[in-house]
Amino acid sequence: MSRATYTPATRTPPRAPRLRFGRTPVRSPLGRAVVRHAMLLTVIAIMLYPLFWMVGASFRPNNEVFTTLGIWPSNFTLDNYTEGWTSGQFSFSRYFLNSLVITGLSVVGNVVACMLAAYAFARLDFPFKRVLFAIMLGTLLLPYHVTLVPQYIMFSELQWINTILPLVIPKFLATDAFFIFLMVQFIRVLPREMDDAARIDGCGYWGIFRRIIVPLSLPAMGTVAMFTFIFTWNDFLGPLLYLSRPDMWTVAQGLNNFVDATGQSAFGPLLAMATLSIAPIVGFFLVTQRLLVEGIATSGLK
């Protein structure tokens, strides 16, 4: 693959246009800050309102969940949390544990496997590289539903139903073309001179990967980890198909257990557990966000 052109970012960013109200520009920096923050807060409030509503509704009695669009519960109760956590054959501690195991393994698998695949596509020379790359990108075009049934038959023949293998093993085989593509694009812009320098110092392919590529690719790895975490944590169809035994349920399946389209649903406990289930995502996002910033800061070359 030809060497990617690398242009250092020397352009100064264009200056933000001055805020205006009607025809009068706001001159005072304090006034500008107030206006900007007020606008941002308004947008945030609108975007987060459904989330706040969910949290508020989780403190309302079950049959009052849908009675109001307001946030503050008039009859405050914690019953939804206590009932929700222990409902079903197994409690939510079991579902959280299952979800964490699957998500943790998926994150590790995706980051390691996609990184290795991306390194090969971005830096190594081997026969049919372009064809293989095109095929890999081609898999992005296949809708999930097309491969669903053949995959199910394959895993069923392998006797992998009701194990976490169908959800985890593919992640270790770099099957997520999008993440590979993302990392390839990232590695391509890293300067080759550093590879050459490392080679002179005695590094082989593996050494370059470990000592040069990986440390410089932390932001990309953080992105992949974050997306994998969110996708896997929220995945419902995969566990639905492959983990049907209640003791293997993930959080998403546990939440599904509150809903019954053919009878009575328990919306209060559902919203309470949904509130808890987004906590790991928010936490993971906060952690990886710091990693992203650090990654960019330490790889000052970019």
């Binding site: 669903l148 049934v149 199910y152 038959i153 069923s156 139903i161 419902f236 169809l237 639905l240 198909l241 049907s244 035994r245 209640p246 399946q253 599904n256 257990n257 809903v259 019954d260 389209a261 053919t262």
Partner: peptide
């Protein structure tokens, strides 16, 4: 094995095609 109505049929269709 249980699932909510819509998801139940989604899974059953896949299981049926897998002979399972």
């Amino acid at each position: 094995e249980s699932a909510d109505w819509g998801d139940y049929w989604d899974r059953l269709n896949v299981q049926a095609s897998g002979g399972n």
